[in-house]
Each structure stands twice: as C-alpha cells, then as structure tokens.
Computed example of a mutant assay.
Amino acid sequence: MAAALIQAIDGQQPHLLRLPAQEGSASALEEVRYVLGSSLPPPGPVVLEAGRWLLRLPDLRQLQELLAALQLELVRVASHRPETLVAAAALGLDTDPGPSRPAPPAAAAGAPAPDLLVHRGTLRAGDHLQGEGSVLLLGDVNPGARISAAGNVLVWGRLRGVAHAGVTGNREARIVALQLRPLQLRIADVVARGPEGLPPPGLAERAQLVDGEIRIDPAAPDFSG
C-alpha cells in the first residue's frame, strides 16, 4: 500500500500525510514524492503519520525541504518509533507517540516485556516514571525525580535526577540523554554518579556497562547508538 494524503477540508485543519503500514523498497521520501505528484494539496500545515517507519534526522530534513518547496509546512510527526519521535523533536516539530495501547495481559515467565513507554513532560521532585520495557521521556528529569525501566532509559532533555535502566537485571540496557547529569545512575545492579562537566556541544550522552563499570560516552542525537 502506497502513502496516502488526506487533504484538509478547510484551512483550519492540517493535511494528513500517512506512510504505508510497512516499510517497503521505496524510501519515505520516494513515497511522499509519489503521492504529492499525483495529488498536490493547497498550501498549509502537514501532519506526518509515520507509523513504524524509522525516520532519522536526515530523512525528516529532506521531507521538510520537499514539503516546503511546495508551500507545505511539516508541523507534527506521529510515530510508534522512539528514534523518529526524537529526530522530529530535534527539528522543533510537535510529536505524537499515538494513542495509548491497552495494558497487555499478564505475560508468562520469560516472555518479552512491552517494548516502549513514551511519556511527554518534565518529571519533578517526587515523580517516578517506570516502564516494563524501555522508556522514552520527552522532557527533563529534575533533581528528586526518578525514571526506571526494565530496558533502556531515553531522555530527550536533561537528566538530573535518578535513572535506573535494566532494573530486572538486563546488563545490556543503556541510559541516553541530551545531558546526563544525574544524582545517580544504575544499570542492572551497578551504580555510578553522573559527570560534572558539560557534554560536548550538539551531542547526546550514553551510559552503558563496559567491563562491569558504567561508562559515559557521546552519542548521536537520534539515540541510535
């Protein structure tokens, strides 16, 4: 199924640009070029429904430039992929992780945990955000707040509270943030304090276990690694 364009009924609503349910041989840019070539909408804002497509910063920049050349403004990206949401936020776009899914039934022992919990907003002192899989926070973690996950902890903001990744013992889990300045870091059963200096300009930071110790390194701002 190709990309679909739902034009706004009036000038108050944005156009809806929906990518196919599954990624195919064509890139997202090619899909959008095809649908715009067959049905060019009037100028106005556009909401992109990316679904499970993995769109990084360069991909979204190209889409943004393509739309801008047609007097269309990309204003929001809806996606089920945390990497796509983070890349959209990096471009200053509104993001939407999609409607909340109902809680799954209790899993049998050894079954994989839910893959991602997305939360938008700052965690303040006394708050605790916890996920059974990985957690993506679009906001800051203030001192006195906690964020924890059985998988990875991803923070599109400043991490200055307490973060615990791999709470069930996953030593491959990572903690990634735009600024990693926590009061305490934990990965599985290993504990460390955050660095005191500022991170390299334009780079996120990643904490992971290396030889049994938590090491913090620069990371790509799309959280890919």
Score class of each variant (00 low, 15 high):
Val75Ile: 13
Val35Met: 04
Ala3Ser: 04
Leu123Gln: 07
Gln184Ala: 09
His119Met: 06
Arg171Val: 13
Leu60His: 03
Ala149Ser: 08
Leu17Glu: 10
Ile214Arg: 06
Gly110Thr: 08
Val35His: 00
Arg52Leu: 11
Trp53Ser: 00
Val141Thr: 12
Ala89Trp: 12
Trp156Lys: 10
Glu31Cys: 01
Glu73Tyr: 01
Asp10Lys: 07
Leu93Tyr: 03
Leu74Asn: 13
Glu73Ala: 06
Leu17Phe: 06
Asp222Phe: 06
Ser38Lys: 08
Gly131His: 07
Ala163Gly: 02
Leu91Ile: 08
Val190Tyr: 07
Leu185Arg: 06
Ala106Tyr: 12
Leu36Ala: 00
Gly157Met: 02
Asp96Lys: 03
Ile187Lys: 13
Gln7Ile: 15
Asp222Trp: 05
Ala219Met: 15
Ala4Gln: 12
Val153Ile: 11
Gly212Trp: 02
Val46Thr: 03
Val155Met: 12
Ile147Leu: 12
Gln22Glu: 15
Ser38Val: 05
Leu85Pro: 07
Glu73Ser: 10
Asp127Trp: 00
Pro112Cys: 13
Ala103Ser: 05
Arg52Gln: 12
Pro195Asn: 02
Pro200His: 03
Trp53Met: 06
Glu205Ile: 01
Trp156Tyr: 08
Ser39Asn: 10
Asp59Gln: 13
Val190Asn: 06
Ala108Arg: 03
Leu178Cys: 12
Gln179Val: 14
Arg174Ser: 03
Gly157Ala: 02
Gly126Tyr: 15
Val176Leu: 15
Leu91Trp: 10
Leu138Asp: 11
Pro102Val: 06
Ser224Gln: 14
Ala165Leu: 05
Ala163Trp: 06
Leu198Lys: 10
Leu74Cys: 14
Gly139Asn: 09
Leu116Lys: 02
Gly212Leu: 04
Leu17Met: 06
Asp115Gly: 03
Ile6Val: 15
Val118Pro: 05
Val155Gln: 10
Val118Lys: 01
Gln7Ser: 11
Ala145Glu: 05
Gln184Val: 05
Leu198Glu: 15
Leu66Phe: 14
Ser27Phe: 04
Ala149Glu: 04
Ser39Gln: 12
Gly157His: 05
Ala125Cys: 02
Arg174Val: 14
Leu209Thr: 09
Arg124Thr: 05
Leu117Asn: 00
Ala108Thr: 02
